[in-house]
């Protein structure tokens, strides 16, 4: 008989079919879940900045407080990237600013150039929330949420890198259970802070929640407004 017949080995396809039927959805879901996760996509973003500013030196070694440069962080929603003038406090050349440290540094040339009215410095934003998400730095910082909770140990980073996913689920983790992420507001920029006397952060956080009246909201309109 000349007509096509299914050969015997097609029987071997049956377990394969079952495996595919069960495995394919699992595979696709996992692929999407891990592939599209901000932990995969966003964490580890480490752009090259126009000036190789080292947080490790300034915030870490020199111990300059975060707020020296990001001086709006406790007053406004936005934590300002400092104006060039702030840099020039130390890195001027007498004419454009008073400080003289690294007067001859090549790397700082773009800075001086910008200060003289040339091309502005375009710092690359590392932690960039979607535009539909509203985040208020002051509201967090003044209630005892340290910089480190979202930005990691910036004082140890030569180049700033995103270490947290900044996804909605991640935000909610803290909004649902803020206690272990709180510290006394005095210690807000002390990125290496640990509670005294061997107390747990949870324990300290509970007290601070009470003290600062911390009741994070979970409504849509908290962040999407």
């Amino acid at each position: 008989m000349s007509l096509y017949q299914f050969p015997r080995w097609t029987d071997a396809l049956r377990p394969l079919l079952g495996l595919t039927a069960l495995g394919a959805p699992v595979y696709l879901v996992l692929l999407f879940y891990y592939g599209a996760s901000p932990k995969t996509l966003a964490v580890g973003y480490e752009p090259t900045q126009p000036v190789p500013f080292s947080h490790a030196v300034h915030a870490g070694e020199l111990g300059i407080d975060c707020r020296y440069c990001h001086n709006t962080v406790d007053k406004a929603a936005h934590a300002a990237i400092p104006p060039i003038a702030t840099c020039l406090n130390c890195h001027g050349d007498g004419e454009i600013g008073k400080g003289r440290i690294h007067l001859d540094s090549e790397a700082l040339e773009p800075l001086r150039e910008a200060a003289r009215g040339g091309e502005p410095l375009e710092w690359v934003r590392v932690h960039d929330l979607a535009d539909y998400a509203y985040f208020n730095h002051a509201a967090h910082v003044n209630k005892g949420v340290s910089c480190v909770e979202c930005h990691g140990r910036v004082d140890q980073m030569e180049v700033v890198r995103q270490v947290e996913p900044l996804s909605m689920g991640w935000c909610l983790d803290c909004h649902r259970d803020p206690a272990p992420r709180l510290r006394p507001v005095e210690e807000i920029t002390n990125l290496g802070w640990v509670p005294e006397g061997g107390r747990s952060r949870e324990e300290v956080g509970r007290e601070l929640m009470e003290k600062y009246n911390v009741h994070p909201k979970q409504d849509c309109s908290t962040c999407h407004r």
Partner: peptide
């Protein structure tokens, strides 16, 4: 694809997400 995901997870990138 799984390897690409693993690589993206455990490396840093210069480009935005």
């Amino acid at each position: 694809p799984l390897m690409i995901i693993a690589y993206a997870r455990f490396s840093t990138q210069d480009q935005p997400r």
